[in-house]
Nucleic acid binder design. Structure first.
Lengths: 133, 133
DNA sequence: CTGCCAATTGAAGCCAACTTGAGGTCAAGG
DNA sequence: CCTTGACCTCAAGTTGGCTTCAATTGGCAG
């Protein structure tokens, strides 16, 4: 059973040592032991960090990530809750996709002023963002 | 020429008065006048706020949004920045998709430990996020 | 004219997710 | 044995985007 120094975990995971200590504080990961003062991490922490990093990249807060995966990296949510999450993700993906396409369009729109482009106006209204002018 | 009280702008735009003052501090919006101490906003501010809100939703910082207005407050959208942002959105969408599939899989996978399930590991590696375990 | 209530100011506070700094520990190599 | 350098702890600082607070002002209805 090989244990890893925090520096090695940092290097292999791309997560800074200070962040690793922070995660441990939060309870997202656990160090397996100490050698003197030094934390020793079990190798499974690398996989857990993958999950954390993935979740963060997907826009979740650390708290939310914690809720999706337990300390051991095993999901501790019941199946239907997991599916609910996935559904929510799908919805978010659709929204982002719309926004992305809108941005693309605006970037390429040849109208002299964006304000005059009907599609742009639609975009502003689509989000129900537009105030009643 | 109708001028709007900050409270009315807040209500119509959905942006809190404190945020409006903050935006004014930053130079994102300008009040047209004062009536006593009270700011009076011109109606064009509502359109600007739509853009600001949209920009925020797309993941731009207020600084970046500020760069999207000309001196006159007319939108002056930087096309390549928009494309960059769209690219970033695409990346985020990919992450979300990955996470979504991971969740779905986890919900349905019969393997005793998900971490050992090859399909699950593949999902994690697909993002090239995984550390070299 | 009076009193209410919305608006004003500047400073301070808050949250997340870390990073930085100061001062201390300790295991291993020469 | 001694030095080195990676690690430790705890506190404070950082950034962005606001919100909250206390004390004050002033427009407007009655």
């Amino acid at each position: 059973m090989k244990l890893l120094d925090i520096g090695e975990v940092a290097e292999r995971s791309g997560v800074a040592p200070s962040a690793l200590r922070y995660y441990e504080d939060l309870g997202l990961i656990t160090s397996a032991a100490r050698k003197g003062l030094r934390r020793q991490f079990g190798p499974e922490v690398l996989l857990q960090l993958s999950l954390i990093t993935l979740g963060k990249a997907a826009g979740f807060s650390l708290q939310e990530v914690e809720g999706m995966f337990g300390k051991d990296g095993q999901p501790d949510l019941p199946r239907d809750q997991l599916h609910e999450r996935a559904d929510a993700l799908e919805a978010q993906i659709r929204e982002l996709t719309l926004l992305k396409e809108a941005l693309r369009h605006v970037a390429d729109c040849p109208a002299p002023s964006h304000l005059e482009c009907p599609k742009f106006q639609k975009l502003l209204q689509a989000g129900s963002i537009t105030a009643e002018v």
